[in-house]
């Protein structure tokens, strides 16, 4: 049997999502963003909501997310994506609105906006990519940088006396009544990717069911910023980040629809 006899539409088991563009991603090889973009695109395609989804991209490496996921996008000022998403969804309650933010964007400069959007229970999805470093600006300390972790601005390792502690913002967000689903995932293995996709799917379904804010953190790698190769980055993440940022659902409440308190 020739390989051409196998490559037929009826034998197709997997293909690139139609919601991903053909643009070549600018992300470094080994970076988690590409996989997470793919999962978001697949979920949008599977739910058939491309025509009613609006993404809000952050400032950081994923500032150009709008080049890769083929939906309408709004590019936010640094940290302000949750406020922008609030504006969109308040005047367009029928849309699926999500923010896609990194750790510097969400947990540092945008800490105020994310807490208040989640506390109001805005009917949005938040994808929070936590790689414990500022990637785009060249590897500086993020609020989630681990104690002792070396970065461009903590060249001798993060010192708690100087810089405080790594922020577990997802744990904080899980405390807010406005959130309905808060989870922490990763994408370093096929099994983890499948789990993460389920979480993202659930988050978008929650928007359709008007359940308030769904928050998906993805503990991620930045091999360029961490200055290790891609495989070593995965190992480093499992060994050092998972104990401090444990994976799993933090909250999955079947709370009343926000309609009830309108």
């Amino acid at each position: 049997m020739d390989v051409k006899d196998i490559i037929k539409p009826e034998n197709l088991v997997y293909q690139k999502s139609h919601v991903l563009t053909d643009n070549v991603m600018h992300y470094c090889p080994g970076c988690s963003h590409g996989v997470i973009h793919k999962l978001v695109a697949e979920v949008i395609e599977e739910l058939n909501i491309q025509d009613k989804t609006i993404g809000v991209s952050p400032v950081g490496c994923s500032v150009l997310a709008y080049n890769y996921i083929d939906i309408d996008w709004i590019e936010a000022a640094h940290g302000r994506a949750p406020a922008i998403a609030t504006g969109v969804v308040r005047v367009n309650p029928d849309k699926y609105v999500f923010t896609y933010q990194g750790d510097g964007d969400l947990a540092s400069i945008g800490a105020g906006e994310i807490l208040h959007a989640c506390n109001r229970g805005e009917n949005i999805v938040v994808i929070f990519v936590n790689n414990a470093i500022y990637g785009m600006t060249g590897g500086q300390m993020a609020p989630t940088t681990l104690v002792g972790q070396k970065t461009a601005t903590t060249p001798y390792g993060r010192d708690v006396n100087l810089n405080g502690y790594p922020m577990k913002i997802t744990e904080l967000i899980a405390q807010l009544p406005g959130t309905s689903y808060v989870t922490r995932q990763s994408v370093q293995t096929p099994a983890a990717v499948r789990k993460c996709k389920k979480a993202i799917l659930k988050a978008f379904e929650n928007v359709g069911n008007k359940k308030g804010t769904s928050f998906v953190e993805v503990v991620s790698t930045c091999n360029s910023g961490w200055k290790v190769d891609a495989v070593e980055a995965n190992c480093w993440m499992e060994k050092n980040m998972f104990p401090y940022y444990p994976l799993g659902d933090m909250k999955d409440s079947e709370k009343e629809s926000p309609e009830s308190f309108k």
Partner: peptide, 26 residues
């Protein structure tokens, strides 16, 4: 018409940015 008290002026202006991006009068 939607009315929302934001958590700061920084948030208000960005809510405006989001809503204005959808062609609404805000």
């Amino acid at each position: 018409m939607v009315v929302l008290q934001a958590e700061s002026e920084t948030a208000s202006i960005n809510m405006l940015y989001g809503a204005a991006s959808t062609g609404k009068k805000v």
